[in-house]
Nucleic acid binder design. Sequence first.
DNA 1: TCATTAATGTTATAACATAACATGTTGGCA
DNA 2: TGCCAACATGTTATGTTATAACATTAATGA
Lengths: 158, 158
Amino acid sequence: MNLIKKSLHDHNSCRQKVMEAAKLYCEEKNLKLTPVREAVLNMLLNEHQALGAYEILEGLRISGFSAQPPVAYRALNFLKDIGFVHKIEQLNSYIACYHPDTTHSPVFLICQSCNDITEKSIDRHEDEFNLLANETGFEITNLVLEAKGTCQACLASA
Amino acid sequence: MNLIKKSLHDHNSCRQKVMEAAKLYCEEKNLKLTPVREAVLNMLLNEHQALGAYEILEGLRISGFSAQPPVAYRALNFLKDIGFVHKIEQLNSYIACYHPDTTHSPVFLICQSCNDITEKSIDRHEDEFNLLANETGFEITNLVLEAKGTCQACLASA
DNA sequence: TCATTAATGTTATAACATAACATGTTGGCA
DNA sequence: TGCCAACATGTTATGTTATAACATTAATGA
């Protein structure tokens, strides 16, 4: 697994920072980061990896929340809409965003060997996709950019 | 719908061209384009849009093939592996590729209004994603590049 | 011909996701 | 305060997408 990578940053403080940012964002926009929503975001921040909706659901059950599928999906969709969670389409799973903002599009590098997911980002409005879309007059509302493959660590240890 | 777009090219000949290419490819690689596989590719080429696996399955049933889910999924995965079909991850559906080759990565523009899907392509090895992956030593085996939004025609008629 | 591999058939079930409606909670305003 | 409206949650049921596992059949080639 990706022990090296994970030790490279202070996970605890990064987690708290994002949670604070989410709270602030919701306050500003008059949205509610309710207990369920906060629990889901917290779980994803803790895991620091992609989780399926039913794993989230199991976590909610353990924490004493109602645990029918819609509960998890509603929270995930809320967090996705405000940009603090992304869906990894190729894995049907969800991951916390550690640098939410509106000027970048997330790019995910998914390692098939260690399951680690790295989030990169590219400039919105200047990237190839937007250029390509602009050429044909297509207006983008959502970009999914995902690469599956093998990460450096796994390549090295192979 | 996208009547204009569709009339812009000779759909029939393009369909046949791709089918020929698939046959040739399989011959060269010693792979078998069996009746089920050909039927699936043909269905996708005819529709000229993304179909769900269970729609494919229904088509197979009508054509007299066995119609349990694995039959459709196996054929789709075979065609995907050889690059003649792509999966649209955001729609959980499958679409024929009209210009299969190994030097480009497909990019899909998915119109939420008319459901039309446009396949574009970008240069492999020179695009931003590969550059981004290279920086970190990540080796890509599969790229998913999909944009959801509104196409020019729909924007104009809105 | 017979062993091997590839493909297909078939049953069952896993995994992912939402519709629809009931109930509770919150905040504003008459 | 009492009521309404909007939002959030609870709950049941079901829809949709996908695969595991094993049996059977077809093609290939020593």
